[in-house]
Simulated assay, not measured.
Amino acid sequence: MAILFEVTVRPLAHLQFLAGGLSGFIEIICFHPLDVVKTRMQIQGTRALHGEVVYSCPLDAFVNIYRYEGLSSLWKGIVPPICVETPKRGGKFLMYEYFKPYFHFGAPQPTPLTHAVSGSVAGILESFLVNPFEVVKITQQSHREKHLRTLSVVKYIIKHDGYGIKGLYRGITALVARNAVFHFGFFGFYNAIKDIVPSPENSTYDLLRKVIIAGLASSLACVMSVTLDMAKCRIQGPQPVKGEVKYRWTINTIRTTFREEGFRALFKGLGALILRAGPGGAMLLVTYEYLFEFLKSKYI
């Protein structure tokens, strides 16, 4: 029995990791420009600093980045996500599948709460792997004048701020909170809605059903977590005043933003976030499911 279990589980784990990694890579390449737009909008204040353009909406940010910085600027900071997101997404789906049996809460089969809690735990664990790459990525994305080389940014951060909570792990508490809330909503809503909406016999319509549900689930999860995402970007990005740390901790960042810029500022970047995470999340989750089933049929 032990030998049979080992032979069965190991190939599934490898296939889950591979399917998650490939789906993550495809999603990053397609939707990274919207991540740049989201970051720019979240770190800007209400007034322009040093003559910088203040973006009024995602489309305005997209147009102005292209106009003043060139097409390639829309892929600023893509190296860190490609380096970490591909294996990270594979690891996330692997952990998500691994934790599901532990969160049935007495139910014979996985419930939407099972998927929500499993996704949340997987999201929390991945935060500790991805945080240094997020700091580097946001530093690159926020720099408007030129393209910063990834290794140069890494060396600069380590030299001046170190590896810890002031350096490469700056904003880790905000990232953990953001990931916990987002993945709870994403996996929970997706599986809850998918169970309610009947599956059509036609495979094309079934694919469309899953894409729409995944996009809706991702958008709802964005609304739940956007304030934490805004705080994360402000903590991890360049501070408004050079030499002064204005944004250090999650709750204080949210309070300061609300006090100085009002309630709407807590949802900065939501439009770009939904544009990116809605179709991006749909592509990620549905691609993972179909790739995993395809790989299972080929190799199991």
Rank of each mutant, 00 (worst) to 15 (best):
K88V: 07
P112L: 08
P81D: 03
L94N: 03
H50K: 14
P108E: 07
N64A: 02
K92T: 15
F62A: 06
I65F: 04
I78L: 01
G45E: 11
K92E: 14
P132T: 00
Y98C: 14
V154R: 05
D60T: 01
V136W: 00
C83F: 04
Q140L: 06
Y96E: 14
S152Y: 00
F99E: 12
Q141G: 01
V136M: 03
C83D: 07
Q140A: 04
P101S: 08
K76C: 03
G91V: 05
E97A: 03
L74W: 00
F62W: 12
K92G: 07
V154M: 08
M95A: 13
L59R: 14
T150N: 15
Y156H: 15
H143N: 14
V130C: 02
L71T: 11
P110E: 13
F105R: 15
I43R: 01
R144Q: 13
Q140I: 02
L113D: 12
F62C: 09
P112M: 08
P101A: 03
I124W: 08
Y68N: 14
A116C: 13
P87M: 02
I65H: 10
V54F: 04
T150L: 07
L94H: 02
I82R: 05
I157A: 08
G70C: 00
I158A: 03
H147E: 15
K88D: 06
G119N: 09
P81A: 00
L71Y: 02
A116L: 06
S152G: 07
G119C: 06
I158F: 03
G123V: 04
Y66N: 14
H147S: 09
L49G: 01
K88Q: 13
V153T: 04
S120P: 09
K88R: 10
H147F: 02
F105P: 14
F133W: 09
H115K: 10
F93Y: 07
H143P: 11
R47S: 10
F99K: 11
H104Y: 06
T150D: 13
T86Y: 02
P108F: 00
P110A: 03
K146Y: 06
G70R: 04
Y96G: 04
Y66I: 10
S118D: 11
V84F: 02
F103S: 13
Y68L: 12
H143Y: 08
